[in-house]
């Protein structure tokens, strides 16, 4: 049995300890907001927080996630009121939307550590892929959520 804390709730799951956290979250716990894009840590669609830090859950064994507090997009806020989610709505960011949970989780973690990132810092830290090319609106939304004045 593996014990996990996800979105402030405890879960016990009977899985192979090598199972990537992503699939435990999706198939066993049932939170499907966290997405599968590549399975090899390249795209960021599966980004969740482990003790506040962004992790690519497709590349983290569930046994290594036992000690920490896991947050998924469903737990970022109870009602989409996290400043990053609000900024995403204000800029009408998503297209297909598939990458957006990962983008939002990566951004929320960035802003928690660096409340006013510059464009260069965004370039360096948000390495997620969006095949729809929503990057320009994401950049605007990050600055909006950060309360940055104008482009930096």
């Amino acid at each position: 049995m593996i014990s996990l804390t996800i979105n402030d709730k405890s879960y016990e799951v009977d899985v192979d300890p090598e199972t990537p956290l992503l699939w435990v979250i999706r198939d066993h716990i049932g939170f499907t907001g966290t997405k599968f894009g590549c399975g090899v840590g390249e795209c960021g669609a599966c980004t969740v927080h482990l003790d506040g830090a962004p992790v690519r859950s497709c590349s983290l064994q569930v046994s290594d996630a036992q000690k920490g507090a896991i947050t998924t997009i469903e737990g970022l806020s109870p009602d989409a009121s996290h400043p990053v989610q609000k900024a995403w709505v204000a800029e009408d960011v998503p297209q297909c939307g598939y990458c957006q949970s990962g983008m939002i989780m990566a951004t929320a973690a960035l802003l928690a550590e660096n409340p006013h990132p510059t464009d260069a810092e965004i370039d360096d830290s948000i390495t997620n892929i969006c095949r729809c090319g929503t990057y320009p609106r994401i950049r605007k939304a990050i600055h909006l959520a950060a309360g940055n004045k104008g482009e930096i």
């Binding site: 049932g30 939170f31 907001g33 599968f36 469903e74 989409a80 995403w88 939307g97 598939y98």
Partner: peptide, 20 residues
Amino acid sequence: PRKDTAAKVDGSAIFGIDVK
């Protein structure tokens, strides 16, 4: 504004992979 934005920022939008 798009009608699908709300569901795409809180993880509730259902894609093919999310069907149950």
